[in-house]
C-alpha cells in the first residue's frame, strides 16, 4: 500500500450547538485524487478547511503527511499549536478557493512569488523564474504582468492554482474551484487540474463537476449532514450508488 498522505480519524466540528462534522474518517494515499460531493451545508467545505486548520476541530485527529495537523497530543487531549507552527504546517498544503482570493494589489506573477520569497525565503530571481514556469504550466505565460482585475475568472483561478503550487505542496485542496466561473471558462481550469493529477499530485477536490469526478478521481466520497454516507470508485458511487441519500442527491445534480 502506498504512503498515506491524509489520515482523518473521527473528525468532529461544531459551531455552537450546530454539529457540522459528526465523526468523519477517511484516508488519501499519496498521488491519489479524492473528490468530495454532497449537498450544500453537508460539511464538505468545512472538512476541507479543517485539513489545513483554517478551521479548528472539536475532536478526532487529522494527520497530513504523518504530521498531526494543528495540534499536539498530550495523553488524551489535543493542544492547539502556536500560530507560527501552524503556518509552518500549512506551507506544504496548497489551497484553491471558490472565489480565487488572489491578492488584487499584486500582478499575477507577484501573487505567485510572494510566498516563496517572503515565507520560504527563496532567492527572488529564482522564485521569479519558477513563477514564470508555473504560469506557463497553467497556460498564462503572457499574463504575468496583469493584475487580477484584468483577468477573466478562469484565468484568475489558474493563477491561484499556480500560486498554491509555488510553495511546492505535497497536498492540494480545491474548494469548489469552478463554482464561481462562467460555464465556458470551467474547462480550462479543469484541464489544469487534470494535468496536475496526471503529474502525480495528491488532491482533494470539493466539487459539483460530476464529469470531472468520474474522469479524474480515484475515489469519490459522498457526504451528508457531516458524515460520510458512501465512498468508493467513481463508477461505483456515481453510477451504482447503494444508499438512498446518494441516489436522491445524484438524481438532482446529474
Amino acid at each position: 500500500m502506498a504512503k498515506l498522505m491524509v489520515d482523518a480519524r473521527n473528525v468532529r466540528k461544531s459551531y455552537g450547538p450546530n454539529q457540522v462534522l459528526n465523526g468523519m474518517s477517511l484516508t488519501v494515499e499519496q498521488g491519489e485524487v479524492l473528490c468530495i460531493i454532497g449537498p450544500s451545508g453537508s460539511g464538505k467545505s468545512t472538512f476541507l478547511r479543517c485539513l489545513n486548520h483554517l478551521e479548528s476541530i472539536n475532536g478526532g485527529r487529522i494527520y497530513v503527511n504523518d504530521e498531526l495537523m494543528g495540534y499536539r497530543q498530550v495523553g488524551n487531549v489535543l493542544h492547539e499549536l502556536k500560530p507560527q507552527d501552524i503556518a509552518k504546517q500549512r506551507q506544504s498544503i496548497g489551497m484553491v478557493f471558490q472565489r480565487f482570493n488572489l491578492f488584487p494589489h499584486m500582478t499575477a506573477l507577484q501573487n505567485v512569488i510572494e510566498a516563496p520569497i517572503g515565507v520560504a525565503g527563496i532567492d527572488p530571481e529564482l522564485a521569479k523564474k519558477q513563477g514564470l514556469e508555473l504560469l506557463a504550466q497553467v497556460g498564462l505565460q503572457d499574463k504575468g504582468e496583469h493584475y487580477p482585475a484584468q483577468l477573466s475568472g478562469g484565468q484568475q483561478q489558474r493563477v491561484a492554482i499556480a500560486r498554491a503550487l509555488a510553495m511546492k505542496p505535497k497536498l492540494m485542496l480545491f474548494d469548489e474551484p469552478t463554482s464561481a466561473l462562467d460555464p465556458e471558462l470551467v474547462g480550462d481550469v479543469l484541464d489544469v487540474m487534470k494535468n496536475l493529477a496526471k503529474a502525480g499530485m495528491t488532491m482533494i477536490v470539493v466539487t459539483h463537476e460530476m464529469g470531472f469526478a468520474r474522469e479524474v478521481a480515484d475515489k469519490v466520497v459522498f457526504i451528508d449532514k457531516g458524515i460520510i454516507v458512501e465512498q468508493g470508485k467513481p463508477k461505483q458511487v456515481l453510477d451504482n450508488p447503494q444508499e438512498a441519500r446518494t441516489k436522491a442527491f445524484l438524481n438532482k445534480v446529474l
Binding site: 496548497g94 491578492f103 517572503g118 510553495m167 485542496l173
Partner: peptide, 22 residues
C-alpha cells in the same frame, strides 16, 4: 475581504506578515 487573509494563511504566511504585505 476576509478571503485575503485565508489565502495568505493557506500559503503559510504568519499573521504579522499577512498584515504587512496583504
Amino acid at each position: 475581504d476576509g478571503g485575503q487573509v485565508e489565502a495568505a494563511k493557506s500559503l503559510g504566511m504568519s499573521s504579522p506578515y499577512t498584515m504587512r504585505r496583504i
